[in-house]
Design a protein around this nucleic acid. Sequence first.
DNA 1: CTGTATCCCGACTGATACTG
DNA 2: CAGTATCAGTCGGGATACAG
Lengths: 135, 135
Amino acid sequence: MIPGHIRVTTDCRTVTEILSRIGDKWSVQTVVQLGSGPKRFNELRRQIDGISQRMLTLTLRGLERDGLVNRTVFPTVPPRVEYRLTDLGCSLLKTVRGLAEWAIENRPEIVAARQRFDGTASNGHTGDERRSASL
Amino acid sequence: MIPGHIRVTTDCRTVTEILSRIGDKWSVQTVVQLGSGPKRFNELRRQIDGISQRMLTLTLRGLERDGLVNRTVFPTVPPRVEYRLTDLGCSLLKTVRGLAEWAIENRPEIVAARQRFDGTASNGHTGDERRSASL
DNA sequence: CTGTATCCCGACTGATACTG
DNA sequence: CAGTATCAGTCGGGATACAG
């Protein structure tokens, strides 16, 4: 159906694992924010909007652990910590941008599909569809 | 730093939303499996490996709701239900393949970064790193 | 064969308070 | 400023049993 398809049994896992890594609530937003240059902790905190201090810390730790972000501490007082994308992080950002384009381009269609699905009571299954179009 | 970057405040959300959609534990695997052609329920169930009946149902419902998968019931006995990717689903698959290539190409580097991170006790923070290389 | 309905547990996440 | 610690609530997801 589609040419050059991936070795499903092996590579699917890899993709799923990567998605588990970046597919959480905050990683992508964080990476994208860092895409416009190095940022400090509270700078990120303000720009990411809904994120809690705790989750920003955890997200940055995770990204750092995976070599996507560098953490630099300047031993001044008050302490200054800078986060910046590594080369690996930058390459991920480029890839994510591909997904971003798809998302932006196809969101209307997805929203429409949802409304269609949620609207018709004749879906075959008995009903009570929750989640009224959170996208 | 990186040219042509996306409008962070607006589009990030869209990407995050899409990631919430496909970033769950089973959606990508399901989509990729369906990439090689229409499949029946238990056929998918066998090929996806760890998935439970419940989660396959929920995943397929979600994909159907978002217009990524078509569900066709043949009113025979025993019932036969076929799932296939829509055009939208196919286009998503192509995009995901980009991510897949990145994942496959960079997994070694990520794994290495993790070992480095987990190995050094001199990370600055006090310690007790959980998740010993699940990737 | 293709689902639906419950129960239940652990993980994720937010809120809040405290520290160097 | 840049975190860490703790507690509590929500939710994803597995196991199991049942149904058309």
